[in-house]
Design a protein around this nucleic acid. Structure first.
Lengths: 133, 133, 133, 133
DNA sequence: GTGGTCTAGACCACC
DNA sequence: GTGGTCTAGACCACG
């Protein structure tokens, strides 16, 4: 389900956060679903339980999960993070787009890319937590 | 010329790389210009010369600078990095745009933003290494 | 009657204690009333009887209930806990007020708030176990 | 400087957070001061460096500190947290005051207490991180 | 069995 | 030396 990249410079727990956030945002993990337990996910990824726990804590702090001690962690309702997430991603998007303009990419070019990304939706929506880099 | 943010989590040399790269990409530093010496830039930024050295090495590896031993470092000709840079930034841009789609932002919305960013060009082009976040 | 918040970090039995204590303190459960049996309250709240048992034990220890073996639990006479409760809450109140002063809130400001809280009494007194956060 | 209470049920890192937050809020640690290093504070408190680091991370997330990798952690400027802190403490204060009212404490009584707390300022301001419980 | 906390000890990147 | 990450293994409270 999740594949870790040990060559990535970022810490492992951050990779886990990113993958899970994407799964949640894209609907791969529906609201109210029970997440795998800290220990089981740690086993599955062959990392220390502490590492997974740290990822869960981060996701909870970001509003994607809530966790009930002794029972497990659960995905929060969509409306709790949807708006927040859109704001964050939009800010990043503006930043990158500005850089693209500086690098000499024309508005038309980006417009075409935009079109491509939004029309090529079927196959990607199937596998939402996939590789982006 | 360059302002460092000590509260930024990223290492300082990386900030220096980023700022200089932007200066070069956006035309603030023209091709074939001589860069300030490692020592003088280190003094100006009040950082360890090692840090500047590392930044220059990175920029050289990325194709923005070339160093002539005993003479100094110079900005390379534009065609050497332009294409490369565009490729990199475009890949990032696609990645973020995909995330934006997953987060529920519509193509129309991003199209409008695109328009805004490209029409509001005059004032921003003046100060290309500025704040993006 | 009582609504549990499963996303609250505190253990469930503590929530039950808090709600019942408020009900008693605010007069929602009059002295000498018979409390619901452990089992029935557990059913009503859909929790483990152990949890309710623990809450009752805590309330008994705090002087709000007394248990007659084989008969059930009953709310104690008011004078048994009134003074104690006031002392505890007053100590907490002093603590927070001191923090408020340290945080820069003026005496006048808190005086106004005090006034507001005590004049807006009618509607809140109806539903004493309600939301405070 | 900081005294840990091992009988306290709360985790150690949380106690550290609380004490340091109070020191900062009350002016015992001035803005831009360098905090003791993670390791040295861990030695001083006889706890594991991880525990202190967790406390620092929390304080950073709450806006009281910023940390520069390889250089240390520093107290942020006052305006970054002052307002936020006041809001939080005021909400708590309202909550407790409401409970005090329910417990039968009169507005006059709390008014007197308020007066006492605010007039007895001299001695307490000297030792702002002191015992509150 | 679940999450939460803590310790001890290790390694890395940065400055 | 500084902070940051990770592992291994332990204990506790909760349900």
């Amino acid at each position: 389900m999740i594949l870790l990249d040990y060559r990535d410079k970022r810490p492992i727990y951050e990779q886990v956060v990113e993958k899970l956030e994407r799964l949640i945002v894209s609907g791969g993990l529906e609201p109210l679903t029970k997440m795998p337990s800290v220990r089981s996910l740690a086993m599955e990824l062959s990392v220390n339980p502490n590492t997974v726990q740290r990822a869960y804590a981060q996701l909870e702090q970001d509003g994607y999960l809530y966790t009930v001690s002794g029972r497990g962690s659960f995905v929060t309702a969509e409306n709790e993070w949807r708006e927040n997430k859109q704001g964050k991603v939009l800010r990043e998007w503006r930043n990158i787009t500005l850089q693209a303009r500086e690098a000499g990419l024309s508005q038309e070019r980006l417009g075409e890319e935009l079109q491509k990304i939004y029309t090529a939706c079927e196959e990607n929506l199937q596998e939402p937590g996939g590789q982006y880099d």
